[in-house]
Structures are given as structure tokens and as C-alpha cells.
Design a protein around this nucleic acid. Structure first.
Lengths: 331, 331
DNA sequence: TTGTACGCGTTATCAA
DNA sequence: TTGATAACGCGTACAA
């Protein structure tokens, strides 16, 4: 596979590179015959412009960066599918980085992508990220940033999220309708947007049905498996809830495992709910029901917003917040 | 976050860009005092060379491409983790593409990555790929390619694979030791290297234990859920095997679901084995045991080989084939 | 020890 | 209608 440049074509056809360049871009100032000649020859030798040269010239890379906590996770890999479909169909590359829930890694990723001159980034914040100073540094100098899933509170950004409130509300209400009254709520660190919204949904559902919120039934938990296990064990030992609602994708499995290993100490029909895109939850025993997020669509929408912004002439002034519906998957 | 170029530094310090360039690269021909001056100023303004300019100059991008059938799959996402860790630690970017088991998409991905001037690629072939003509086009013109997992038969390439033979052998032998004699073998298309190797392991285990291979118990199956379902149903309706061994990661779940939905028609202890890196298999009911591949290590090793090759002066003549051990995860 | 000039591949500007 | 030249940012051969 030979690499052909404009110069090669020019030499072969006895033209100047600028003529060839213009002919290929169908410029009005070029003779039709010349255009045809150039087009045919270019096709024959399979000419493709060197994207790196274009990047240098335009100071654009036609690549976007994605920063997520983890790839090996259904929610994020589905979201990435959405991002890639949108990006590739519009001629953009996607460079994926993982923060592994670490603020340091998130900073490194940002710097890395910025230096590589990606045109903009899509990011879902790490569990350790408490503010977005490190992101503002970049976004302020005209570097496009779109948040999805785990977004900051600050305004002044495009955001794409699931309707976490409604999802948590629906799951909680479902459990209440099953006759449950002491529903444990295990959730991610309060720094995350999703944590607050889901907790709110849980509380509002209880209130609607006249159940007093018991703060002993709400526990925040990091992403460490041991911590998840300890949390569940503690619940089973002391509060003895009649249902579990794990409000974090990353947490759900560890909690579920701890729950499963002690299921004999609980009534057989104790329901367990997660907030996860795990696509095999219906194969579990005991059953695992989940709130499912439209991960693919979230990714695709976020990418679309970013690319629209990159390709629009004027600087965006009004920022969108897209909220997509979740649905319950009852097992 | 300002973008600083050599020229900016040169102007600020009243030097030429070449002096600045050499000072930063610690050239012997530059005065120590100048070096220090430049280094300090560069650090202060946070100078970083523009990788795109370097790419254009060196005709290298310090990026590698990865083509896999699907990201949203534990095996591949774990392999990608290995690839990324190796690549990032050596200052390379990773661009990920999915073939979605389509030859056409695989070709597009190749062209895309090649045009983007990635320095080389890591690829696990799609299920539809029957030969590697489309890859030879590139590899012949000095474009580095390393295969992993699903590799071609052709010699002349670096390859990193799991010991598929031994994995399948061990799983089959385990089932035999459980007293099973009619073990169904459901596997991927014969075009894939992994298919043949795993089938061979299965057969050899049967032979070792004096069980005649019954070809009626071996079925090839595409990656379509319906096809998987039909295959399992057919087995249950006619051959009534006393154990199932699904030899494909992509297939295992669909087969398992079909199996589960008809488990009441089978003896309660009918074992089901997969060849998958699904990390929640132990939570399933009925039980799902698996042959697990060292996915992370496969990715990391493949990336290491590719990068070593890219950074080595001489052209590689003897190609390595790395074979990594699998292990059984009995549930 | 430092500076000037060039080239990587492309496009835009200016000249012919 | 076409061509020559400069510029994007960098490193290096050559000149001073």
C-alpha cells in the first residue's frame, strides 16, 4: 500500500501541487479537463490526503477524546459504542482513556488528550473528582468539553445524563408496591451527580407512599469490593432491610455477591435492585432487577453535541442538558 | 491553557528556534547557561512539543490502532486494558476500532487507521474473515501488524494467543471426570483459529479417556442469538447430551440462555461450560463454569511486541508466537 | 556556541 | 486557468 502525496501526483501529471490540490477540492478556478485528469489519476493511485499534514495546518485533528472511569463495564462500553458510531460516521477518530476512578489519572488523561490536540472531549467524571478546576483550565481556552453520565453541578457546559431521579423513583416505587417498607439504599460517593439524583428519587418515592425516610437505611460506599461487602454485611447484621437498592453500576455486583453469600439469613423473596446495564442480570439467582440507562444513546447524543459544536462557526452560548429516560428490567 | 511553541520561547528569550530546540533536547553543542535558561522558561510556560508537527516530520504518530470484534465484551475490554497500560506507559496513544464481526468493517477500520498514520496495529480477526489478503496489502509495505486471540494460520506475523487446545482439553477432561460421556461441543465458525484449536483439545481429551468422538455432538454456530438458540434446542431435542461445552466467548451467553430456559427437560446436574471471561459467571443459576483466558496479559504482551518492533532499528525476521495459559473457573 | 534554511504534506495568498 | 511561495511546528544539516 503505497502512500501517495500531492507532490507525487503533480510530478506525474506535470502540474503544480497547488493545481492538484485545487482540482481535487473541485475549485471553480480549475479547468474541467484538468480536474478530470487529476481526479482520475488520484483515484487510480488511491490518493488520500495526509490527515497529519491537515492537522498541522488547521490546528485540528478530527479526533475527539473520551475519558471514562473504566472500559470493562457494560454501561461505558455501550456508551462508547454510541460515541464511536456517531464520530466515525462524521469522519472523526475516537481516543479512549480510563481514569480508573482516580483524579490523578483523570488529570493525566486530560493533559494527554489536550497535548495530542484532540478537538474536544467527552468525559464522565471519576468517583474521586470533587471539583472541575482541572477541566476549567482547558475549557476556558476554547477547548470543547461535553459531560455525560457523571456531570458536574456547574452550569456552562453541555451535559447528557440519564433521568436518574425518575429511574430511582420507579425502582423504589416498584419495591414499595411489592410490599417492601425498609428498603436499603446503597450508593456511590456524594460527590457524584448521579448519587444525589438517585437518592432524591428514592426519598421522593418513599414520601409519596407515606414511608418515613430512615437515614440508617442509606449508606454511601466507595468502589472497593471489600467496602461493598462490609456495607451489605452491616445491613444484614443490624438493620435487616426487606429490600436492597444498589444505586451504582460499579457497586452493584460487589454488593450483590455479598448479598448472595448471605441470602439464607434473609427471607427468600428479598428483592435486590441495581442501577446497572449488566446485560446478564436476568440469569442471576437470586434475582437481580435493574434500572437500565440508555447508554448507547447517551454516548451518541453526547458525541453529536460535541461534534456539532466543533463544526459550528459561532461560539456556543446556551448550553444544553439532555436528560434521557431509563427503564426497569425486572427479573 | 495556552499552547506554547518553540517560536514563542525563542522570541521571549531572544534566541533562535533551533537553539531552543537543541537546548531542550540537551544537545552537547549548547551552552549550559543557555540550556538552563531555556529549560526553566519552558517549564514555567509549560511547553510541550506539538505531537502533530513531530508526526509530520518523522512520519510516525506514536499511536497504535486496535481492531477487535466488539468492545462490549469482557475478554476484549480486558485485553484493551492490557494494551492501553503498555502503550500509555511508553508514550503511545491507542485508537480502538470495532469490526462487529464484519469483514467489510474490518477493512474500513484498517484503511482508516492506516490513513491516520498509526504506527502499527493489533488485531483480533472478525468471525467473517476467511483470509488476510486485506491485511497483507498493508503489512507488506512495512506497516507493523501483530495478531492476538484470533490469528491467521499464515506464518510471517507476530501472534499472541491463549493455549486454546489445553484450555478445551482441561474443560473436557473435567467433565469426563464428572462422569459425563456425551459432551456437546458448540463452537464458532471453522474459519477462526480458536475454533480449530479448541475442537482439537476437546477431541484429544475424549480420546485419552477412550470415548469415541461423535460428530453429531459437534456443532458450528455463528454469532447470532437465534442461531445459538436453535443449536441448543436441537441438541436437547435430539442428541440429549449430558454436558454442554460452548467454545466461544461471543456464543456462550446466548447458548446458556437457551439452555437455561429448557433446563427442566434435562437432568438437574447437567453441567454447562463456557470459554469466556465473563466475570460474573459464578453468580449464575444453573451454574456456569468457564475456561478463562489471560486477556489483560494477552493485550499487554501483544502491545509490547508491537512497540518493541516499532522501536527497533532492524526489520524483524523471526516472528514470535506467544502462547499463554488459560485456567478453569469451576462454579 | 548559535543561527539560517529546509523539509515533512497541505492549503491559502498572491502573482502570472 | 495555473504556478510559486509561505505557513503550520519541529528537528537537523549546514553555515557562521
Amino acid at each position: 500500500m503505497e502512500v501517495i502525496t500531492l507532490k507525487d501526483i503533480a510530478k506525474a501529471l506535470n502540474l503544480s501541487t497547488s493545481t492538484v490540490s485545487r482540482a481535487l477540492r473541485d475549485s471553480y478556478e480549475i479547468n474541467e479537463k484538468t480536474k478530470k485528469l487529476v481526479a482520475e489519476y488520484a483515484k487510480k493511485v488511491n490518493y488520500r490526503p495526509n490527515p497529519i499534514a491537515l492537522s498541522l495546518k488547521d490546528n485540528k485533528s478530527r479526533a475527539i477524546g473520551v475519558i471514562v472511569p473504566e472500559i470493562a463495564n457494560n454501561f461505558f462500553s455501550q456508551a462508547i459504542n454510541g460515541i464511536e458510531d456517531e464520530a466515525y460516521s462524521r469522519g472523526y477518530h475516537v481516543v479512549i482513556c480510563q481514569s480508573h476512578e482516580s483524579l490523578e489519572r483523570e488529570k493525566e488523561n486530560l493533559r494527554h488528550l489536550f497535548e495530542r490536540r484532540v478537538d474536544g472531549i467527552l468525559i464522565s467524571l471519576s468517583g474521586k473528582t470533587k471539583d472541575i478546576k482541572h477541566i476549567l483550565e482547558y475549557s476556558e481556552s476554547n477547548f470543547a468539553v461535553v459531560f455525560f453520565d457523571r456531570v458536574p453541578e456547574s452550569s456552562g457546559f453541555h451535559k447528557v445524563v440519564a433521568d436518574n431521579f425518575s429511574g430511582a423513583f420507579a425502582a423504589t416505587e416498584y419495591l414499595i408496591q411489592q410490599g417492601k417498607k425498609r428498603i436499603a439504599h446503597i450508593t456511590s460517593p456524594l460527590t457524584l451527580s448521579i448519587t444525589k439524583e438517585r437518592l432524591e428519587g428514592y426519598k421522593k418515592a418513599l414520601e409519596k407512599h407515606g414511608i418515613v425516610v430512615d437515614n440508617e437505611l442509606i449508606k454511601y460506599c466507595g468502589f472497593d469490593p471489600e467496602e461493598a461487602k462490609a456495607t451489605i454485611n452491616d445491613f444484614i447484621n443490624t438493620q435487616k432491610p426487606d429490600a436492597f437498592f444498589t444505586c451504582s453500576d460499579r457497586l452493584a455486583l460487589h454488593c450483590y455477591e455479598a448479598f448472595q453469600s448471605r441470602k439464607d439469613e434473609m427471607p427468600a423473596d428479598t428483592p435486590f435492585f441495581g442501577f446497572t446495564n449488566l446485560n446478564v442480570s436476568h440469569l442471576f439467582s437470586p434475582k437481580l432487577s435493574t434500572v437500565v440507562q440508555p447508554a448507547y444513546e447517551m454516548g451518541a447524543r453526547a458525541a453529536k453535541i460535541l461534534l456539532d459544536q466543533l463544526e459550528s462557526k459561532r461560539k456556543v452560548k446556551d448550553f444544553e442538558k439532555i436528560v434521557l429516560e431509563t427503564y426497569l428490567k425486572i427479573s
